[in-house]
Computed example of a mutant assay.
Amino acid sequence: MPQFNKNTITILGEEIPLGASREINFNIAKLHTGTKIEIPIIIERAKIPGPTILFTAGIHGDEINGVDIVRQLITRKINRPKRGTIICMPILNIFGFLNSTRAFPDGRDLNRMFPGSSNGSLASRVAHRLMHEIIPDVDLIIDFHTGGASRFNAAQIRIIKDHPELDELARIFGAPFVLYSNHIAKSFRNACYQLGKPILLYEGGKSFYVDNTISKVGVEGVKRILAHYGMLHHRIACSAPKRPTVFIEDSKWIRARQSGMFKSTVTVNTKVNIDDVLGQITDPYGKIFHEVKSTIEGYIINVNEASLVYQGDALFHITKQVRA
């Protein structure tokens, strides 16, 4: 990461000097009533120059576990750096957050609208302003997500392969797993990559739910990253991960072979072997009892917690090839 020594950074047109604390409102739109819709951006700059790190969450309005992680960074004053700059944006998709939906009011997924357009849809305009008025002065982004619908993700960092800098940062973060995944076209992660901005995507938990363990892993990972760059205050404790991070080279979904009432008997992070029973599918009439078994050996990194499933539904995500 470049060690920028900028005395002043510019966020949404406002110049912010070293040693300053700011809360800037990202004015993205108005309601039909004329009420402004604004996203608070919390900026903390130390007096000593250093990297600028951006923490974002809530790009999908139903992914509130990430919002809780960034909230904790602020309330516990972890976002006040010893050197450099920390920018926190707890909720990118304020519309979805307020309405308990994943997308923007027009049905668009903000995370498929990057790098955006100044003349496009509302989501596209928000993406465009984020990329042009906030990202340019940022050196590293950590973006917090959760699993979708009823699928509970193990705490994991997602990065692209063959980038040693990202491998190092992911190892420092110390989540239990690192999953190599390609960039998705028009995603925030891809847009940052195109600008040469390193980004770690943290996945953990599920939609509409806050899991304390997932939050703790996220907060502790942030502290390790800040400590690595000499940005974490000495008054804030930072511990090493309890176990080495597992890097996932390949993985496989175990899918339902029939429809019915589903109950998992294992949890995320569990190491399983071939033919281990993972759960069961039954019917309301007591005629069906089907055991879901693992077809591979590996760690479970996602569990579908839905009570009712259809044939073909993804039930368990299991690692196939891993390395320490």
Rank of each mutant, 00 (worst) to 15 (best):
K216F: 12
A103E: 14
E38S: 07
Q258N: 03
D313F: 10
K77W: 02
S117M: 11
I225R: 09
L179F: 10
I87N: 02
K197E: 01
F262V: 03
T295F: 04
L12P: 04
I94G: 04
N27S: 11
V268P: 02
F173Q: 07
I184Y: 09
R22N: 00
G107A: 08
E305L: 15
H290M: 13
E23D: 08
D143I: 03
V266W: 02
G174N: 02
D211H: 08
I16P: 06
H163G: 00
G61M: 08
L315E: 02
Y310W: 15
S294N: 07
G84E: 04
P115S: 14
V292F: 02
D106R: 04
Q72F: 13
I296D: 10
M89Y: 15
A149V: 04
M1F: 14
A240P: 01
I301S: 01
K216H: 12
K293H: 09
N5Y: 13
H128T: 03
G286V: 12
F188W: 04
I28Q: 05
A191Q: 05
V217D: 00
P136K: 09
V266I: 12
N25M: 11
G61F: 01
E14M: 05
F208G: 12
L31P: 07
G298H: 05
K252S: 13
S150I: 08
Q72K: 13
V67K: 04
I91G: 04
E168C: 06
A155E: 05
T75W: 07
L130S: 09
S187R: 01
L98W: 09
S215A: 11
Q156L: 02
A256V: 05
I69W: 05
V178H: 00
L73S: 05
F247L: 06
I11P: 00
C192N: 09
T265N: 10
I236L: 10
R189M: 15
E133F: 09
G13R: 07
I69Y: 03
K47T: 13
